[in-house]
Simulated assay, not measured.
Amino acid sequence: MSIPLSNRGASDRRIWNASARGVFSVKSAYALECTLQKRNEGGKSFSGAANRQWKRIWDLKDNTCPVCLSEPETVVHVCWGCSATADVWGRISVFRKWRRDFYDFQALWEEMGTKLKQEELELAATVMHSIWLRRNEMVFNGNFQSPNAVIAKAQADYSVNREVQEGVPGAAVRILGSESRQFDKDRGRMGIGVVVRDSEGALIGSLVAPKRNVTSAFQAEGHALHRAMVFCIELGLMHVCFEGDAKAVVDAVNSETEDNSWDGQLIEDIRQLKAAYLVWKLGFVRRSVNASAHVAAKLAVFFSCESVWLEDGPSEVRKSIMDELVCNELIQS
């Protein structure tokens, strides 16, 4: 009952249970072997000193660019000077003939500020952000995106940002699945709270739902995010920004690495939903920003079945939203 099954009818797969991502690696195999050996051995008096020595070795750092492997990694190198980065900028006509030898990022940005229009400057910042994300994806997950993929993501982000600035109707979705007070590990149950609001903070809809046979907080947060996305599809919303306070789930969904972990099927289901709506965004926010959804999740554990409100919500949720709107007005005044 607690095995996370895919809603897509995905095929079964083998996973390596000794790593969090379910993928075999020499490091995880070595850690498993050490764990098995320690079960049959007593502790050694010098183990602490040995661990400290190994930590010093593993902490040694090399500042060479992990992409081109030929120059020191600096901010201006990653975002502009690297040969792999040049392939990205070379596909954007306005930057095609720019020089590459800026000595630091400030010099690059100052020149952009004097030569570019506001829209071009905003696009440049978005492209740099995509390039930096590509660098992180390669370093931490071993994936390297093509220049066209980087540009496509940057253009999508830029379009969404422009729509928000110009007041194009959209919706901001604040979702919260379950934290320690909503997820009961011993009983395997959780509460889902979803609050959907427009760009001005007005309530579009809300949802509370209890769920059983949940084995971890990560799985609980994943179920909440999945239900929030399905709820927005049911409401017919196209431009949605999802905000969740479970960073591990947000990072897992936004990553392009195949997830072979125990909850990988659930993450893949969420990714598929998100991929169907290119303008959907998913970001991490702290719980203090997610107060209304947190209130909804706390209420959900007391419900016997899922309940939905359109342009309304439980009185506790409405009060939380009203308090937030009043607070924002006081800050702006």
Rank of each mutant, 00 (worst) to 15 (best):
R96E: 14
A276Y: 01
E41I: 01
A154Q: 09
L121G: 12
R52C: 09
F144W: 14
S255R: 04
N17I: 00
D186C: 06
R52G: 10
I57K: 12
P147M: 07
E41K: 15
L282G: 09
A124Q: 04
D59M: 13
D157R: 12
A202P: 00
D263A: 12
Y158M: 09
A171M: 03
R21Q: 05
V326L: 15
D312T: 05
N141I: 00
F218C: 02
S178H: 06
V250E: 02
Y158C: 13
V168S: 07
W54G: 09
I233A: 06
P314D: 09
V67L: 14
K61I: 01
R135V: 02
S11K: 12
L32H: 10
S180E: 12
G142S: 06
G42F: 00
E306V: 09
A220N: 02
M138K: 11
R318V: 11
Q53F: 11
N63H: 12
S93L: 07
W109R: 13
S304M: 06
A86Y: 01
E258Y: 00
W132Q: 09
H294T: 11
M138Q: 06
G191F: 04
S178Y: 00
V127I: 15
V249T: 08
L5R: 14
K61A: 15
R174P: 00
G43E: 10
H129P: 00
F95C: 06
E258T: 07
Q106D: 11
L299T: 06
E163D: 15
A10F: 00
G113M: 01
V285S: 10
M1N: 08
V301M: 10
L116K: 05
E163A: 13
A18R: 06
S333Y: 02
G201R: 05
N143I: 15
G222K: 04
S83N: 12
T114G: 02
